[in-house]
């Protein structure tokens, strides 16, 4: 049998995590699938489990003037219907898994699973999300991009738990999200695209973001490329189209797998980028 802990407070969870090498489990929608065995037998874990999903103190959505704070055990369905959730994140959640799964899966779980095809990460990358990583002794804040280092790889330490996700408020008046799954719902992405921009009254691009998943070992966001177009007028921006496409074409390294192939992933990604650029 698997040993497991059901802490009654975040403090207790941190203490257990400090003392013992345990696996954290939130909604379990990835872990229970990854560790399944023969039906009627319990899933097979090689470490004791520390359940976090019952911790009410980690289920919250709060904001102040600059930032939205999301408790790490907030389920996706709550985020989908909350007034303060950024629209692009809502668009993404609406196409993730199925409602039943969304009621139990958490944003933090999706982050630490660190799948190259994770959809929620599109918004977290684009919105410069920060993660609050807490251990018994200290707390540190890291950017989502520095947190994920490869497929299923993060910098989280063995005594740390994600306490909170912070999203700085940023205005975007151009939002384009497109998920390509094998079908219209309940599908893992072949690839997905999120384009965000803010175009001001003088028709200048203040901010410009493009994030892609499932075309490289981690999600793709090109900060330097984005900076080359920020501040440009829409007119000047149009001349940058080929250079932009070339930059993304160079950065993406898609693969063949059971869901799609590299040629398609590359072409569809470039088409979506072109479409976003042309409709700004």
């Amino acid at each position: 049998m698997v040993k497991h802990y059901l802490p009654s407070s975040f403090q207790e969870a941190l203490e257990i995590k400090h003392q013992e090498d345990v696996m954290l489990i939130a909604g379990g929608t990835d872990l229970m699938v990854q560790h399944r065995t023969w039906s009627e037998l319990p899933p097979q874990f090689d470490k004791p489990l520390l359940f976090l999903f019952n911790l009410a103190e980690l289920k919250y959505i709060k904001k102040d003037a600059n930032t939205l704070y999301i408790g790490s055990m907030t389920d996706l369905e709550t985020l989908l219907y909350h007034n303060d959730t950024p629209p692009c994140l809502k668009d993404i959640i609406a196409l993730m898994a199925s409602p039943a799964i969304r009621y139990v899966c958490t944003l933090a779980g999706n982050i630490v699973n660190a799948s190259p095809a994770a959809d929620s990460l599109l918004a977290l990358y684009a919105l410069d999300a920060k993660l609050v990583l807490t251990s018994l002794k200290e707390e540190r804040i890291v950017s989502i991009e520095s947190f994920i280092t490869g497929p299923r790889q993060t910098i989280i330490k063995s005594n740390e738990i994600i306490k909170e996700i912070q999203l700085p408020h940023q205005p975007f008046n151009r939002v384009h999200f497109k998920k390509i799954g094998g079908r219209k719902s309940d599908a893992i992405s072949k690839l997905a695209f999120l384009g965000l921009a803010n175009v001001n009254q003088d028709h200048q691009i203040d901010t410009f973001r493009i994030v892609l998943n499932a075309v490289a070992p981690t999600l793709i966001r090109l900060h330097e490329t984005e900076r080359t177009v920020e501040g440009l007028s829409l007119e000047a921006f149009k001349h940058q189209k080929d250079a932009l496409l070339e930059a993304y074409n160079t950065a993406i390294k898609p693969i063949d797998d059971q869901r799609s192939n590299r040629t398609y992933r590359r072409q569809a990604a470039l088409n979506l980028i072109r479409q976003f650029i042309e409709t700004l």
Binding site: R183, K184, S185, D186, Q258
Partner: peptide, 10 residues
């Protein structure tokens, strides 16, 4: 997950 059949949405 990998063998895609239509859902009600499709």
């Amino acid at each position: 997950t990998d063998y895609i059949i239509p859902t009600a949405v499709d």
